[in-house]
């Protein structure tokens, strides 16, 4: 009795060529693996590098510095508190920092609130099709 084995040459050659291709390609991109891991790690630093710091503070306005570590521009739509507001939206270009000016409406009340830890700011940011609304205590 003879057993007839049906060989699917398409699948056999397909797998051989695919494995050959993987083998050859991986030789050329060995560095990509390490670079790729480093790149992923650098994204976790983005949260720390995205900073808003106070530059100057006086009776009429507060100057804030916004640092943008991203490869995308960040739009600051609004920053509002009880006694402060943003005059106009600002666009911070990629890998750049920008000073933005907050208008103070009532200086003594603002100082009072800050010392009591009750002055909260609502920050509204935009990155492409993403909008972030955050409440922070000043």
């Amino acid at each position: 009795m003879r057993i007839k084995i049906i060989v699917n040459w398409g699948k056999i050659f397909g797998i051989i060529f695919a494995i050959l291709f993987i083998f050859i390609s991986f030789q050329t991109i060995k560095h990509d693996y390490y670079l790729g891991i480093q790149q992923i790690k650098s994204f976790t630093n983005v949260q720390n590098d995205l900073k808003i710091s106070i530059v100057s503070f006086n009776k009429t306005n507060i100057v804030l510095n916004v640092n943008n570590p991203l490869n995308l521009s960040i739009t600051i739509y609004n920053i509002t508190g009880k006694y402060v507001y943003l005059k106009k939206p600002y666009i911070v270009p990629p890998h750049n920092s920008k000073d933005i000016i907050l208008i103070v409406t009532n200086y003594s009340e603002l100082i009072n609130n800050i010392s009591n830890n009750t002055e909260t700011l609502t920050i509204s940011l935009g990155i492409l099709n993403t909008t972030i609304n955050e409440v922070e205590t000043l």
Binding site: I29, D32, Y33, L35, G36, I37, Q39, I40, F43, V46, L70, N71, L72, P94
Partner: peptide
């Protein structure tokens, strides 16, 4: 593409 950068791991 993540945060405006092309992901290198995508090559693999």
């Amino acid at each position: 593409n993540f945060f405006g950068d092309s992901l290198i791991l995508g090559n693999i």
